[in-house]
Amino acid sequence: MLTGKVNPSGKLTETFPQRIEDTPSYLSYPGEEGHVRYAEGLFVGYRYYDRKKMKPLFPFGYGLSYTTFEYSNLRVNRTETTEKDTVEVTVTIRNTGNVAGKEIVQLYVRDVESRLVRPEKELKAFAKVALEPGEAKDVTLTLQPRDFAYYDSTYREWVIESGEFELLIGKSSADIVLRTTIQMNAHEPFRPLTITSYIKQIAKYPEALAVVKETLKGTFFADFLDSPFAGEMPFFKLIGFGMPREAVEGLLERINTVLSNR
């Protein structure tokens, strides 16, 4: 391997930080009094460095080789999909160096807009391909419906939302070389809003938003609803600003009635 007779083909399965202080668990590990708080939540590994826009020493999926590889001709078997379909993603890999080698193709998925917080991108598939000098091969990776889902702890189920998803082909988590977008048209069952739901969850339903505006007419919140910050406010904040809890719960009941009858 050191002399070049054998070409290394492995890639890192973790992220190497510049400093130990850069790790997502630095402030909460090892904990105290026998308790460790997993404060990083979803943002472990490359997900944390993506969100912080922090450059690590070596990113997840990184690897060296005695040859070079060219990625091209990204295509998908469908540009629109549903929660029942699989998506096949194909890319052409060419060995552009002078020695044989193997490359690990990585496929990440990015939810362009989500109701809940999601990582910037998530690794969903990968494959290793062996290539002689100058040789090119197509690599096909398959995405299952679950690969587009996130877990909603409020409803205790996996959720696939309609909307745009980016499919990202990378040599590592920090080296995305090709990308395309597909449209997810998922059937989303009605999920009642709760007191912890956010205002933005009804923004796309004019009839429900009208109920909120009518209820809050004449109050401080009537004008606030048109601000860019209103969507990030959970309903229980209305209680904190003086609206009786019974009134907030009544508002939610009316909203849910409107949404369930859509």
Rank of each mutant, 00 (worst) to 15 (best):
V44D: 13
D22E: 05
S227C: 06
N256H: 02
D22V: 03
G170Y: 01
Y46I: 04
S28Q: 06
P192V: 02
E188P: 03
E135R: 11
R110T: 01
L193R: 07
R19C: 10
P56S: 04
N185Y: 08
A100K: 10
T180N: 04
V112R: 14
V76C: 01
L251D: 04
T140F: 00
M233I: 13
A149G: 00
I195S: 01
L259K: 04
G170D: 01
M184L: 11
S260T: 00
D22A: 06
F126T: 01
T79Q: 13
L193A: 03
E113L: 14
A136Q: 11
R115K: 14
L116G: 01
V91P: 00
F43P: 02
K121L: 13
Q183N: 04
M243G: 06
L42Y: 12
E232C: 01
P17L: 11
Q201K: 05
S28C: 11
V117C: 03
F220N: 11
E83H: 10
D152F: 09
L143I: 02
G250P: 00
D50C: 06
Y48C: 07
R118M: 13
T257S: 13
A39Y: 05
F148L: 14
K217G: 00
P133E: 02
E21Y: 09
M1W: 09
R51S: 08
V87K: 09
V212L: 15
N256V: 00
K52G: 00
N256E: 05
T219Y: 03
Y66M: 10
E249Y: 04
F220M: 15
K124I: 10
R94M: 14
E249H: 05
S153W: 15
T140P: 01
D175V: 10
R245M: 14
K52R: 15
D223G: 08
L167A: 09
F16K: 13
V248I: 03
E232R: 12
H187F: 12
T79N: 12
G170T: 01
F69W: 13
P228N: 06
K128I: 09
V36C: 05
T196C: 02
I255V: 12
K124R: 15
F58H: 11
M233R: 14
T140S: 03
P119F: 04
D111L: 12
L238I: 10
Y26L: 12
F235I: 05
S173Y: 10
K11F: 11
R156E: 14
Y62H: 14
N261S: 14
M233C: 04
R118Q: 13
G4L: 12
H35D: 04
R254W: 11
T86I: 08
T23H: 02
G10T: 03
G61K: 08
G4P: 07
T15R: 13
